[in-house]
C-alpha cells in the first residue's frame, strides 16, 4: 500500500515536470519565432541599405554621387542582365543569388512627366511564404534627357 502511494507520488511529480517542460517549450517557441522575424527584418534592412549604394543602379558623375538616385538606363539593363545570368549559372548568377537570396526587387514610378514605368529587377519569391517588404523612395534619373522622376523601390524578403 505504502509503495503504491510512493509510486503514485513519483508519477505525479514526473507529470508535473513534463507539463512544466511543455509550457517552457511553448513559451520558448514564441520567442524563437520573434527572433527569426527580427533576423529577417535586419537582413531586409541591410539589403535595402546595400541596394541604395549598388554600383549596378546608382547615378554617378565621376566620384560625385547623388543619394537615393537610380539611373534609368541601368534599370533597363540590369533586369535583363540578372535574368541572363540566371540562365548562365556563372559568377553573376551566384553573386546575385548570394546577395539577394529569396527576395524580389521592383521599382515603380509614381511621379513622372512621361509615361510611368515599372521594372522588376529580381524575382525569387516563394509562393505562400512569409513576406516582409519595405518601400524606399528614390529619384530615377534619365541620362538621355537629363530629367528626374520619383519612384518607389520595393524590396520584399521571403521566408
Amino acid at each position: 500500500m505504502q509503495s503504491s502511494e510512493t509510486i503514485f507520488v513519483v508519477v505525479i511529480i514526473i507529470m508535473i515536470v513534463i507539463l512544466g517542460l511543455v509550457f517552457y517549450s511553448k513559451a520558448h517557441e514564441g520567442s524563437v519565432k520573434q527572433d527569426i522575424r527580427e533576423q529577417r527584418v535586419l537582413r531586409m534592412i541591410s539589403l535595402a541599405h546595400a541596394l541604395s549604394n549598388w554600383p549596378e543602379l546608382e547615378c554617378s558623375t565621376l566620384d560625385a554621387r547623388d543619394f537615393d538616385c537610380i539611373d534609368r538606363m541601368k534599370l533597363k539593363v540590369l533586369s535583363d542582365f540578372i535574368s541572363e545570368s540566371r540562365s548562365e549559372s556563372g559568377y553573376a548568377f551566384n553573386y546575385y543569388s548570394d546577395l539577394l537570396k529569396r527576395s524580389s526587387i521592383s521599382v515603380t514610378e509614381i511621379y513622372s512627366y512621361k509615361d510611368k514605368e515599372s521594372w522588376v529587377l529580381y524575382n525569387n519569391s516563394i509562393p505562400g511564404a512569409t513576406r516582409e517588404s519595405v518601400f524606399i523612395p528614390v529619384n530615377v534619373y534619365d541620362p538621355s534627357d537629363q530629367t528626374f522622376s520619383f519612384a518607389l523601390l520595393e524590396l520584399a524578403v521571403y521566408e
Binding site: D71, M73, A92, Y95
Partner: peptide, 20 residues
C-alpha cells in the same frame, strides 16, 4: 570577378545610350 561584372554592365548601358 566583380570588375568583370560591372564592366559588362557598363558596356550594356552604353549600348542602351547609343540607341538614343
Amino acid at each position: 570577378q566583380r570588375m568583370n561584372l560591372i564592366s559588362r554592365l557598363h558596356m550594356e548601358r552604353i549600348d542602351a545610350l547609343l540607341q538614343v
